[in-house]
Amino acid sequence: MSHMQKLKTRVVKKNLNPEWNDDLTLSISDPHAPIHLHVYDKDTFSMDDKMGDAEFFIGPFIEAVKMRLSGLPNNTIVTKVLPSRQNCLAEESHIMLKDGKVVQNMVLRLRNVESGEVELQLHWIDIPGSRHL
Rank of each mutant, 00 (worst) to 15 (best):
N21S: 09
L37F: 02
N74W: 06
M47I: 12
M4E: 15
H32L: 09
P31G: 01
D53Y: 10
L72W: 07
A64W: 01
K42L: 03
L72S: 04
R68H: 14
N74V: 04
L7I: 07
V39Q: 01
I35S: 01
L24S: 05
A33G: 06
A54M: 06
D43W: 09
T25F: 13
L26Q: 01
H3R: 13
N74S: 10
Y40P: 00
S27D: 11
E63V: 07
F57L: 13
H3P: 01
F45K: 11
N17H: 12
L24I: 05
H36E: 13
I62H: 01
H36Q: 14
L16Y: 06
K50P: 06
A33N: 09
P31D: 09
M51P: 00
M47T: 14
L24F: 07
M4Q: 14
G71E: 09
D48A: 06
Q5S: 08
G59W: 08
H36S: 14
F45R: 09
E63W: 01
P18N: 08
V65I: 11
N74F: 03
M47H: 15
F61E: 02
S27Y: 15
N74K: 07
P73T: 01
K42P: 03
E55Y: 13
S29W: 04
F57R: 12
L16V: 11
K50Y: 04
M51R: 15
P31N: 12
I58W: 05
D30R: 08
D49K: 14
F61S: 02
Y40Q: 12
G52Q: 03
S46L: 12
D23Y: 11
Q5L: 10
T9D: 09
V39M: 08
M4F: 05
P18S: 06
K66T: 06
T9K: 00
H3E: 15
